Amino acid sequence: MATGGRRGAAAAPLLVAVAALLLGAAGHLYPGEVCPGMDIRNNLTRLHELENCSVIEGHLQILLMFKTRPEDFRDLSFPKLIMITDYLLLFRVYGLESLKDLFPNLTVIRGSRLFFNYALVIFEMVHLKELGLYNLMNITRGSVRIEKNNELCYLATIDWSRILDSVEDNYIVLNKDDNEECGDICPGTAKGKTNCPATVINGQFVERCWTHSHCQKVCPTICKSHGCTAEGLCCHSECLGNCSQPDDPTKCVACRNFYLDGRCVETCPPPYYHFQDWRCVNFSFCQDLHHKCKNSRRQGCHQYVIHNNKCIPECPSGYTMNSSNLLCTPCLGPCPKVCHLLEGEKTIDSVTSAQELRGCTVINGSLIINIRGGNNLAAELEANLGLIEEISGYLKIRRSYALVSLSFFRKLRLIRGETLEIGNYSFYALDNQNLRQLWDWSKHNLTITQGKLFFHYNPKLCLSEIHKMEEVSGTKGRQERNDIALKTNGDQASCENELLKFSYIRTSFDKI
């Protein structure tokens, strides 16, 4: 039985969820670079991206490699990797027998973001014989899940209580170790020597080791999670996991709180800001991140802002960003909400898709409305799209047979046209069989910064309504002859009103 693990408890099935942008060198404390989270699957090609990484700022997932063999891993080693800020997950990587050479110096898994409450997941690794993470000293947050690894031993010899604050939620089941077939031998045991430290858990006094050649490092209890030197002297209180010299914040392997210019500090002093819960960055760093993602459509890219001495992905609820200094300031009234469309555009074809934009005031991208039916549609669209004030790209209304009016965009005031449909149009209306009105132009103002209007096959939309939009939106004169079809717009509506004058002759039985 794995020490510190839980057996036999019912657990939810383990679901495996399925960018080499360097964020800056980590400095003297770390020998390499800070790398983003990685999802490495199918083959070993991307694994080489770990070569210079000291910190993975995010998670590391290595999974679904069915053609790899043990010899493929023999020359692979990433000794610079010290810390993973989120979680480490391995799933069905064939041929991998140990992690001792792959990650010989991995010391800390912070667990800032977890995989279903777990910071370390080893699942269905069919050839893994031992973990071998002999320098792993601290899992700051989260638990361990090690399950269905039929060859995995050296679990009962690990004292997880020396690595985690609590072992109650560890789930370590259905491994070879369960069948008591392992016969784990710690260093020196074969020669009758006791080389590794022994600890007591559940009444068992057991030597602690990761492999037959690597003991588990056990520091004096007084050192807590700070770690200790090879001689057993406690590291500085700002260290986490390990250090090369005692009581020196510049000799830590990793930091308990924050890293700044080669030393570990309790908090980031001005003019620095907390970033990702582990390091200090200056304003320029946060500003660069903001600008890199301002026009990016890459998933996970955030326009970072500053709030409460932190550089964070977005302002919290009730705050909006001051564009001059990136500071989050309290909103006066309802907060603006910028919604970034991942692929640059979004099609609204149902109430469900409209709900995804609920509360958005600025759309960074283009909207395509293609709704053919739905219950209580006008009210639903207004509830979900009615706060949109600005669209950076274009607005396209296409084959939306259920629409009679666009009044559900009740606050839309600006279409920038930074991206144009077919390279020309910022407003595009095609084949809307029941569209009769755009907006009530006596109450609604709309500016279209650039781009043209396109109207074709809107049989109940009168040309007068379209011409009014040209005047109000500032697009009059931009359109070419064929942009607004004269014969297919309003051709099934009563669009022309003329005053009919009647004269009559009164007659009676005795007068003409």
Score class of each variant (00 low, 15 high):
H59W: 04
L102M: 07
S317E: 12
S225P: 11
W278C: 03
L88E: 00
E207V: 08
H127L: 02
R92H: 10
P270T: 10
I222Y: 06
Q245H: 12
E314Q: 03
T199R: 07
A190S: 09
A119H: 00
C228D: 07
G232F: 04
D247H: 15
H290Y: 13
C255G: 00
Q216L: 12
C239R: 00
N308H: 07
F115T: 07
L152P: 00
L96T: 01
K191N: 15
L289V: 10
N135T: 10
L50S: 01
G300R: 10
C243L: 00
A190M: 05
L90R: 00
H212G: 08
L76C: 04
N242Y: 09
P70R: 12
D184P: 04
F283W: 05
K191F: 13
T211D: 07
I139M: 10
N117D: 02
N202L: 06
G58P: 00
S143R: 09
N105M: 04
D261H: 15
S143I: 04
G192H: 14
K251Y: 13
A190P: 11
Q276S: 13
K148L: 13
F66Q: 04
F258D: 02
S317Q: 15
R74H: 15
C331S: 03
V144M: 11
Y87E: 00
H226M: 10
V265P: 01
K129N: 09
E124T: 01
N202I: 03
F123A: 05
K129E: 14
I201T: 06
I185D: 07
G95F: 05
D159E: 12
D247K: 06
R145I: 05
V218K: 12
N322E: 00
H28R: 03
F205L: 12
L90M: 14
N149V: 03
C243T: 00
M137F: 05
F116T: 09
C239W: 00
L260T: 08
N117H: 06
S237G: 10
G241P: 02
L89T: 06
Q245S: 07
H307I: 12
Y304P: 05
L102V: 11
I306A: 08
A156L: 04
L260M: 02
M65P: 02
G300H: 07
Y134M: 13
I122Q: 00
Y134N: 05
R279P: 00
N170A: 09
N150L: 10
E314M: 04
C335P: 09
K67A: 07
C243Y: 00
G318A: 07
R208E: 04
C186I: 06
P334K: 14
S323T: 11
K294W: 13
V55W: 02
R145G: 03
L63P: 00
H302V: 06
T157D: 11
N257R: 12
L128H: 01
M83S: 04
N105S: 12
H59C: 11
A198F: 10
P269V: 10
S213G: 12
H302S: 10
N195F: 10
K310W: 14
W160C: 02
I139T: 02
P271A: 12
L88H: 00
H59A: 06
T140R: 08
E71L: 08
H48G: 02
H214P: 06
H307M: 14
V253S: 15
H59N: 09
G203S: 09
L233R: 14
L326C: 05
E33W: 12
P70A: 09
L81D: 00
V93H: 12
R208S: 08
D177P: 14
H290D: 03
C239V: 01
L81G: 00
P271R: 15
S143Q: 11
T68Y: 15
F116I: 13
K191S: 10
C243G: 00
